[in-house]
């Protein structure tokens, strides 16, 4: 179940990476914001759950778009290192804003369809888990179709293969970057909202969850959307196994240790491809 969350977040990363060659360090913060805004809307403004969900996603997407327009849009050169630092700056900014707006407490949302566990063969499952997996599937399938069949989706794919050629055939890569951040924010915020009923959400959850999302991305192969799915699920499974076998305090360390091993031995991930520099 956790795997789906990682998968969704990781998809967001890959979208941005494909469009910009940069890692979006603020992805975790998009997740956090999704949860927090939904909480604010539901608890504060007392909107119904579904309205909170969609409105929150919309808001976070807009925020991401605004950030992109205000900052990255002006970076003509877009050196990768600078972009990385820039998104780190975003993540700090968003985290700080969240802390100012909502303080340091954790909040929760009610489960989408009640909190009575369901008996599934021998295992008990939270209904929210089904929502999470279901929505994860929906997003994966949706995006798959989007990239395969829609004009914008195919344009983005073109950009990810070769940005300059894409530009030459008339694709506006500036828009592509904007859309990619928007999509990343959309998927991230969805992930944040659907996980809040299970794990609560506070202003600083963005960091760790974003990092795990990175792991999933690299596990499956940087730049490969299907890798995200594989990587996310695999990471979720490995983490649970690790928590069961070794103490749960070290569980995070295990996830990152696996991450390091992947980087050292197969940096292109399970499904990725290698690129070489031409001299």
């Amino acid at each position: 179940m956790i795997g789906s969350i990682y998968a969704i977040i990781s998809i967001g990363f890959n979208i941005v990476y494909n469009a910009t060659d940069a890692i979006n360090f603020a992805q975790g913060e998009f997740v956090m914001l999704g949860g927090m805004v939904a909480i604010a809307l539901f608890n504060g403004v007392k909107l119904p759950l579904w309205a909170s969900f969609f409105l929150s996603v919309a808001i976070v997407t807009l925020v991401a778009a605004a950030l992109e327009r205000m900052t990255i849009h002006y970076q003509r050169e877009r050196q990768v290192v600078n972009l990385i630092i820039l998104t780190i700056g975003w993540s700090i900014f968003l985290k700080g804003s969240a802390m100012l707006s909502w303080g340091k407490d954790s909040f929760d949302l009610p489960s989408f369809s009640g909190s009575d566990p369901i008996q599934f063969w021998k295992a008990t499952l939270l209904p929210q888990a089904l929502w999470i997996i279901g929505i994860g599937l929906l997003i994966s399938v949706g995006l798959h179709l989007f990239f395969k069949y829609s004009l914008i989706g195919r344009a983005m794919k073109a950009c990810s293969f070769d940005r300059i050629s894409a530009r030459l055939v008339g694709i506006d890569d500036d828009w592509m970057v904007l859309i990619s951040f928007g999509l990343a924010a959309t998927t991230g915020s969805i992930a944040g909202i659907i996980i809040t009923p299970v794990t609560l959400m506070a202003y600083d959850n963005g960091g760790m969850i974003g990092l795990k999302g990175f792991c999933a991305t690299f596990l499956g192969g940087l730049g490969n959307l299907y890798g995200s799915i594989v990587g996310g699920i695999l990471l979720g499974i490995l983490e649970s196994l690790g928590a069961g076998l070794i103490s749960s305090g070290y569980k995070d360390a295990i996830a990152f240790a696996i991450f390091l091993l992947i980087l050292f031995f197969k940096p292109s991930g399970l499904l990725g491809h290698e690129t070489k520099e031409r001299v």
Binding site: S91, I92, K95, G96
Partner: peptide, 20 residues
């Protein structure tokens, strides 16, 4: 005190954009 996180974020962004 509470704004320090935000300010660091803004500094990072501003530096990257205007004085890399």
């Amino acid at each position: 005190k509470n704004y320090d996180i935000i300010i660091y974020g803004v500094i990072l962004i501003a530096v990257m954009m205007f004085m890399p």
